Computed example of a mutant assay.
Amino acid sequence: MRIAVPNKGRLHEPTIELLERAGLHIENGADRKLYAETVDPDVTVLFARAADIPEYVHDGAAEMGITGLDQVRESGRELAELLDLAFGRCRLVLAAPEDGDIASPDDLAGKTVATEFPRITRTYFDDRGIKPSIVEVTGATELTPHVEMADAIVDITSTGTTLAVNRLAIIDEVLSSSVRLFARPDVVDDGKVQQVTTALSSVLAASGKRYLMMNVASEDLDAVRDVIPGMGGPTVMDIAGTDDVAVHVVVDEREVFEVITDLKSVGASDILVTEIERLVE
Rank of each mutant, 00 (worst) to 15 (best):
R89C: 13
R89S: 15
R89Y: 14
C90Q: 15
C90F: 14
C90L: 15
C90S: 15
R91S: 11
R91E: 14
L92D: 03
L92R: 01
V93I: 07
V93F: 05
V93N: 00
L94C: 08
L94V: 08
L94Q: 03
A95M: 05
A95S: 06
A95D: 02
A95L: 03
A96T: 01
A96R: 06
E98F: 08
E98Y: 12
D99S: 15
D99L: 13
G100M: 02
G100F: 02
G100A: 04
G100H: 00
G100S: 09
D101E: 15
D101M: 09
D101F: 09
D101I: 11
D101V: 12
I102V: 05
I102A: 00
A103R: 13
A103M: 11
A103V: 13
S104T: 14
S104A: 15
S104P: 07
S104R: 13
P105A: 08
P105H: 05
P105S: 01
P105Y: 04
D106Y: 09
D106T: 10
D107H: 01
L108C: 05
L108D: 02
A109D: 09
A109L: 05
A109P: 02
A109M: 07
G110A: 08
G110D: 04
G110S: 07
K111L: 09
K111R: 12
K111H: 03
K111S: 06
T112L: 08
T112D: 09
V113M: 02
V113H: 02
T115I: 04
T115E: 02
T115S: 05
T115Y: 04
E116D: 05
F117K: 10
F117Q: 11
F117N: 07
P118I: 05
P118E: 04
P118A: 01
R119E: 10
I120G: 04
I120S: 00
I120M: 01
T121N: 00
T121C: 02
R122T: 15
R122S: 13
R122E: 13
R122Y: 10
T123D: 13
T123I: 13
T123R: 15
Y124A: 07
F125E: 01
F125P: 00
D126Y: 06
D126S: 12
D126Q: 14
D127F: 10
D127I: 11
R128N: 02
R128Y: 05
R128G: 07
R128A: 10
G129D: 03
G129P: 01
I130H: 04
I130W: 06
K131I: 13
K131W: 13
K131M: 12
P132K: 06
P132M: 00
P132F: 00
P132R: 03
P132N: 02
S133M: 14
S133C: 11
S133A: 14
I134T: 00
I134V: 11
I134E: 01
I134K: 05
I134L: 02
V135K: 13
V135L: 14
V135N: 09
E136M: 11
E136Q: 15
V137D: 04
V137E: 07
T138M: 14
G139F: 03
G139R: 03
G139P: 09
G139W: 08
A140R: 14
A140K: 14
A140D: 15
A140E: 12
T141E: 01
T141F: 03
T141S: 07
T141C: 06
T141A: 10
E142S: 10
E142D: 14
E142F: 10
E142P: 06
